[in-house]
Design a protein around this nucleic acid. Structure first.
Length: 318
RNA sequence: UGCCAUCUUGUUUCCC
């Protein structure tokens, strides 16, 4: 079952829910983990109808081990902004764990209901470090950076994510100096911390600092590479962006999409289209950037033509 | 020196 679960999880993570479901249906026996993988796979990709339908037929929903599937659904509805459904599930579930509370808290916070988020945080019988990190994020998300910092200072212990959330909070509000102070103080940094800094400085137009941090990074994942591409592109350095793109050891689809956007904005539609055609595997955003790139350039006829070819490749416009 | 699952942090999809 373990190996089958891994396979289902692998497909689900890729967003290939059809294949995930096929394995799910065909495997010899499912465990609670299998169900959680499949339900959360749907939920994380915005397919809440499928997630809820599958959850309906899940056995032993009242068992404590089923809370992960409940939580996945709650988080999914929260992300979609369907707080009513999220809350209904939260109220209905027989055994709530901390992640259940954190899921509903995040749901409210991400949809502008900061007071509800705070009340639930206070109402929870216990909080873990994720709860605290979620509250930092909640305040940051709702433009309350000082309160976010208050939570950060007050919380009982901090992990790398705590530091990352707080640093990102400052960066997202353009407060580079406090961000840098925390960055320098942070006991442990990871790729997320550094990438956030690269992006934050680039957004503020400090490309030299941005690229210096990027080049100093030991581990550059595909997000980091993409951030550097975007950093150059958004500051008008298309050639440098292309150079980073060429240098990247592994280009994921987001890097391609960024280059398409960059070229389109630069007026080089030919190059944009050429790259679009060369993408190893297109995702939803690839189509979106290509269509809007053409549309922005006044080539609405071409945009419509690309749009019409969506379904030919099995895509459904959203 | 590789990971079966839920909740919190960085990137591409108006402008910058």
């Amino acid at each position: 079952t373990y190996s089958w679960n891994s396979l289902v999880a692998a497909f689900a993570q890729k967003g290939d829910l059809e294949r995930a479901r096929m394995v799910f249906d065909r495997m010899p026996e499912q465990s609670v983990v299998t169900w959680t993988v499949m339900v959360s796979g749907y939920a994380q990709h915005g397919c809440l109808d499928e997630a809820a339908a599958l959850f309906e037929s899940m056995p032993n929903k009242d068992a404590p081990t089923s809370s992960w599937a409940w939580n996945a659904l709650i988080a999914g509805f929260g992300e979609l902004g369907d707080l009513q459904s999220a809350r209904r599930l939260f109220d209905a579930m027989p055994v709530r764990d901390i992640a259940s509370w954190n899921s509903i808290i995040t749901g409210y916070a991400e949809n502008g209901c900061l007071d509800d988020a705070k009340s639930l945080f206070d109402a929870a019988e216990e909080q873990n470090i994720v709860s605290w990190n979620s509250m930092i994020r909640a305040y940051s998300r709702n433009a309350e950076v000082e309160r976010a910092r208050g939570v950060f200072d007050r919380m009982p212990g901090r992990d790398t994510v705590s530091w990352n959330v707080m640093i990102a909070a400052y960066l997202q509000h353009g407060s580079l100096d406090p961000a840098k102070d925390l960055f320098d103080l942070s006991p442990q940094r990871d790729t997320v911390t550094e990438t956030a800094m690269v992006y934050g400085y680039a957004q503020a137009g400090h490309l030299a600092v941005s690229s210096a941090i990027f080049e100093s990074m030991k581990e550059k994942d595909s997000v980091a590479w993409n951030v550097m591409i975007v950093a150059y592109a958004q500051n008008g350095f298309l050639a440098e962006a292309a150079e980073v793109f060429d240098r990247a050891p592994r280009r994921d689809v987001a890097c391609w999409n960024s280059m398409i956007t960059a070229n389109a904005k630069n007026g080089d539609l030919e190059r944009a289209v050429e790259m679009f055609e060369r993408i190893p595997s297109r995702d939803c955003a690839s189509w979106a950037v290509m269509i809007s790139g053409l549309g922005q350039s006044g080539l609405s006829r071409d945009a419509r033509r690309v749009f019409s070819s969506l379904d030919l490749e099995g895509w459904r416009p959203d």
